[in-house]
Amino acid sequence: MALDENSHELRSSKPPWRLGMLLTKPFARIGRSTISWVSNLGASAIFFMLAFLKILHPKQWSKIIQQIYYIGARSTMIILLVSLFTGMVLGLQSYTALVKFGAQGALGTLVALTLVRELGPVLTAIMIAARAGSAIAAEIGIQRISEQIDALDTMRIDPLRYLISPRIVASIISFPILTAVFDIVGIIGGYISGVLLLGANAGTYVYRVQTSMDMKDVTDGFIKSIVFAFIVSTVCCYQGYFAHMRTDSHGAKAVGLSTTSAVVISCVLILVSDYVVTSLLIRG
C-alpha cells in the first residue's frame, strides 16, 4: 500500500526535466524547421541540377516549344494587362508627387527606371508563378499521385528529363521575353496616365525614357528575370514532383497544398533573391 501511494506521488509530481523540455521546445521546433528548410533547399538544388543536365537530350525540343507556349505565350495576356495598369498607376502617383517639386519632367525617368530595374522582372515573375507555376505544380502533382510518373519509370523514360527539364528551359526563355514586354507596355501605361490624362509633356517623357536608361539597366533586369525563372520553375516542379512525400496530407489535398506552397515559396524567394541580386549588381 505504501508503495502504491509512493508511486502515485511519483506519477503526479512533475519531474524537473519536463520544465526544461517546455522551455527548450520552441527552440527545438525552430531547429527542426530550419533543418527541414535547409535540406529541402539542398534537395531542390540537386533536383534542379539533375534536370538541367538533361536539357540537351535530342528528344527535348518539341517538349520545350510546347512548354514555351504554356508558360510563356499563354501568360502574355495577363502580363499585358498587369503591366499596362502598373505603368498607369506608376505614372499617376509619380506625376502627382513630382508636380509638388516642379519636377514633372522627370516622370519618364522615374517610370522607365522603376519598371526596367525592379517592377518589370519582379511582377512578371510573380504573375507567371501565380498563373503557370501553380499549373505546373498541380499537373506534376496529379501525375505523381496517379502513378503516371511511376509509369514513366517503368517505361524507362526519365521523369526529370521528360517532365522537368523542358519546363526549366521554357521558363528561362519565357521570363526575359515577358519581362521585356512588361517593361515596354508599362512605359506606355505611364505615358497614357502621365501624358495623355494628366498633361505632362510628351516629348520630355519620351526623351527622358531614352536618355535615362543605359544598357546595364536592361541587362540587370534580364539577369534578374533569369534568376527568377530558375527559382519559379524549380520550386513549382519540385513541389509537384514530391507532392506524395508531404507529411501533412495525402492525395488530392497534398496536390492542393503543394500548389499553394509552390506559389507562396516562389513569391517569397523572388523578393528575397531580388534584394540579393540587386545588391550584387549595384556593387558590380
Partner: peptide, 20 residues
C-alpha cells in the same frame, strides 16, 4: 541492368494512363 529491366512492362492497378 537497364537492358534487362527494359524487357519488362508494367500494367498498373489504376492503369496510370496519361490523362492529357
Amino acid at each position: 541492368r537497364m537492358a534487362k529491366l527494359a524487357q519488362i512492362s508494367y500494367m498498373f492497378q489504376d492503369n496510370a494512363l496519361f490523362d492529357s
